[in-house]
Write a protein that binds this DNA or RNA. Sequence first.
DNA 1: GTGAAAGCGCTAACAG
DNA 2: CTGTTAGCGCTTTCAC
Lengths: 336, 336
Amino acid sequence: MATIKDVARRAGVAISTVSAVINRSAPVSDDVILRVQDAIREIGYVQHSAAKALRSGNSRLIGVIVPDITNPHFSTVARVAEKVCMEAGYMTFVYNTGEDADQEMRILQMMRMQRVAGLILISTRSDAAHGARLMSEINVPTVFLGSYVEEAPFDMITLDEDRASHLAVDYLLGLGHRDVAVISGRAGVSTNEERLNACRRAFAEHGLELRDDRIIPANFSQQQAYDGALALLAAKDRPTAIFALSNMMTIGVMRALLSLKLSCPGDVSLIGIDDFEWPEIMNPPISVVAQPIVAMTECAIRTLLDQITSKKDPVGHRTMFPPELIIRASCAPVGR
Amino acid sequence: MATIKDVARRAGVAISTVSAVINRSAPVSDDVILRVQDAIREIGYVQHSAAKALRSGNSRLIGVIVPDITNPHFSTVARVAEKVCMEAGYMTFVYNTGEDADQEMRILQMMRMQRVAGLILISTRSDAAHGARLMSEINVPTVFLGSYVEEAPFDMITLDEDRASHLAVDYLLGLGHRDVAVISGRAGVSTNEERLNACRRAFAEHGLELRDDRIIPANFSQQQAYDGALALLAAKDRPTAIFALSNMMTIGVMRALLSLKLSCPGDVSLIGIDDFEWPEIMNPPISVVAQPIVAMTECAIRTLLDQITSKKDPVGHRTMFPPELIIRASCAPVGR
DNA sequence: GTGAAAGCGCTAACAG
DNA sequence: CTGTTAGCGCTTTCAC
């Protein structure tokens, strides 16, 4: 492959001049710029990122770590991150943890080997012990997206989780539901804890209580939500409404409803957090509390890029985005 | 950041010894291995991929280029590629073309800058002119997944497209349908051309003809399929069945059916290529011709890794995977 | 404006 | 088995 040296020889200039032309890092006469550009085209020269990164100490690589790219929520994150980063001259490395903390650490290690300039992290756990491991493995600007981790004082971009749960619970209670079950995500993940605690608070504000046996843990997993909802709905004291704290779990509940031939919202009302791309083709079109994930991702990348550029330490600042209640056809007044 | 030099000093050995330990590239006494590993741990040394790549001429990077990661079909590709590559000690760069040929070229350029060791490519076009551009931009082992490109003699892993269309058309005709519309993908993409031509053949084999005005072009786009299906279905001579040549287009047709309040399969039968992850929550559960995308992706990566290792030129060999007809609730005998 | 030269962190060849 | 050394391709002083 052609090197910068070949370009210099071909254009009849010095190596440093070629570099100056490529990077616009020093003034060069128009005539020379043209000669160099011609030479580059003629011999098909392409910069060698690794060499550049090695010498300059800047990889211009951003790592994006998500639980599972197969979840539409996270593939949107990946797509937006790619776009915004590319516009800023960075490339993205998107990797999946599969919700596994060890895998997360392995990926972090790879990101370090690649000397990424920054990290967007959707972590697998939020506890302090995990934060400590994270801090020992991360030495670049990082921003948390959606969830955050104790003792890891990076900036974070999240949904207003409290408001998200309130929106759903208030809606359900307003419809007259009193026996509501909550399908909850992974214990120890901030997203889940905040949503769940907000549910408890929302019930309390109505003088009601969210009983522990009405909280069905499902680890953010579609399958576990299905299993949990199946057991819940097959019992004779089934709830009149279900609130699922994430998109995949909402799908799991829908499947349970369907396989039990229970009508929704006739027999049971259902609402979830996270919107779906084509809700109208679902049976039934589901009411949700949507999060503005595109805007959140853009904000996360911008925040990260800022931090990389400014080289100032993060302060653990949290930016919250407002959720939106979207009413479709999956909830009805109780006893209808 | 610590370098290999620091490790050597700390362990009291030569740099080359450290390298030998890290890469297992030369025999080293157990005692020394331990000392080196301790030193690595103590000072938190992490290999510098860029330096290693520069020196060794091997980036251990694989580029995966897909149309849109937001499409579940392609996010599965990304996920499987990541997994298989990681097991083989490679990292993946997943990038989206957005079905845009210029963007594809831009990505290819970036991949070249990164000196990727190989490429999995789902290209935006299949014509010879595009093939020529591709050949001038690609200088590493490459395998096409799903589609292929004329004049670009790389190995390819695809579905048995002929059989896929036959499965769907034979099924529909067997149900008595005679007026069937086909929602087709992007003209000039091999996948689409092959599926479409196979449709024509399948009709002919039944002594029927697939009229051109029953082929609705929709560029593999959900929105265009929706628009096309809306016009098609609003007309008074609407077809009794629709065959959509990809998952997103199937969704578009479903939305059109729903917004016109047409019953499926009561008024119109619908079948598509590509399976959905939770068909039961769709309204109605859709019958499809599924492709074994996980196995296909694994095969593509293995083929690529083989080629990288063996350093022998690709021969343009095509491996085809069998499609499977999955009957659910979206097709009924005509006139029911 | 241009050119020479040092060196980023690493591998691999070679001499001990 | 260990140590020395020459670059991989590039950026970046610094002298001209």
